[in-house]
Design a protein around this nucleic acid. Structure first.
Lengths: 196, 196
DNA sequence: GTCTATATAGTGATAGAC
DNA sequence: GTCTATCACTATATAGAC
């Protein structure tokens, strides 16, 4: 990996603020969290927050952008050229299940917030890089004949739709066992549906 | 249908308020909508609103309860005893697709709001009557051998997960064609995954 | 049952000392 | 770069006339 400019990392306050904000945003919601709540929970002052961020919205935006970037990187590392579409898609599903277990708040914020309502500037998740990488993995499967010929959004939804719902149910506490437990079942059901 | 007590229906202001509120809640979000916005959009006064409802939250709650009740009724009429699980599940999917086209705001509010954040009192959608009726339709299919033996939440997610995602994408404007267009494809993919 | 006017509390953000 | 004090504003909800 190339040396990247550390434009982000005082590593101290900025990331502490983001971490605290993510926690409060996911547990109570963006609008139920005031900047003063973040201040209190992080044990710092209002001034410090507004020194690092322009506005409450820009805190949310920073969290969102960071998470999408991380995910993009992760999926890029997981999907391997020359591998079957089946293997790549399964690896993605596995990764997202693990991610939802290890970092549920990040997952909740990235996938299940109503971003439009508090970050009018942000693109919807569906248009994000990680999602388009998932579509690309599916497209390769269609092109090489592993997956039935279908419009790409449709195929991606058929393959990953139940996974997204599983993650949702898990984050909501409806499902109580770790998601990787269900990987085989969920993936095989979905694959059976779309494969030739 | 039996004569029901009209506890709801002045049919005038109350439902006008609910309709206006639903529109604003779905287009701008609950927290971006003030009671004054509802007042203005409905062309009435604050006093009238607070005469009919205790609070802003109770307006949201009323919308939510009404919609869930309607849906419960609708699904009850659609699922027919003695029909195959396949037919009943397909009928449910068809109904929800049509519903999403005819009343997208209702669907958006019912399925994709973060209810917890503004109606702490409300049960999550997953625990609602309509959802439990969907699980029941799937359970019958497992019992009679149409559907592979699986834990019920898992089976329901495999069968309806892609449908929920399609509705989501359609409401978000990602999909531009009417959902019923995709009914056959979506249902067959999902059914192939869970059926014996 | 509907109206207008207002009370009260809390928000996001800024100013300016250190 | 971090703090405290405070501003300007908007929100929900209530009071009380009609």
């Amino acid at each position: 990996m190339t040396e990247k400019i550390q434009k982000n990392r005082p590593k101290d306050l900025r990331s502490a603020i983001l971490k605290t904000a993510l926690h409060l945003f996911t547990t109570h919601g963006y609008f139920n969290t005031s900047v003063h709540d973040i201040r209190r929970e992080a044990g710092i002052s209002i001034g410090a927050i507004y020194h690092h961020f322009d506005s409450k919205e820009s805190i949310a935006k920073a969290i969102y952008d960071d998470l999408l970037e991380q995910e993009t990187e992760a999926i890029a590392q997981i999907t391997i050229d020359g591998q079957t579409a089946r293997d790549n898609c399964r690896a993605i599903m596995n990764h997202l299940f693990i991610m939802a277990e290890e970092n549920p708040e990040a997952m909740e914020f990235m996938l299940y917030s109503k971003h439009r309502e508090f970050m009018p500037s942000a693109l919807p998740v569906c248009s994000s890089k990680p999602l388009s990488m998932m579509r690309k993995a599916v497209q390769l499967g269609i092109d090489n004949g592993e997956i039935l010929p279908m419009e790409i959004t449709l195929a991606t939804t058929c393959l990953f739709g139940s996974m997204f719902r599983m993650i949702h149910l898990r984050l909501d506490g409806i499902i109580t066992e770790p998601l990787p437990t269900f990987l085989d079942t969920i993936f095989e059901c979905a694959w059976r549906g779309v494969s030739r």
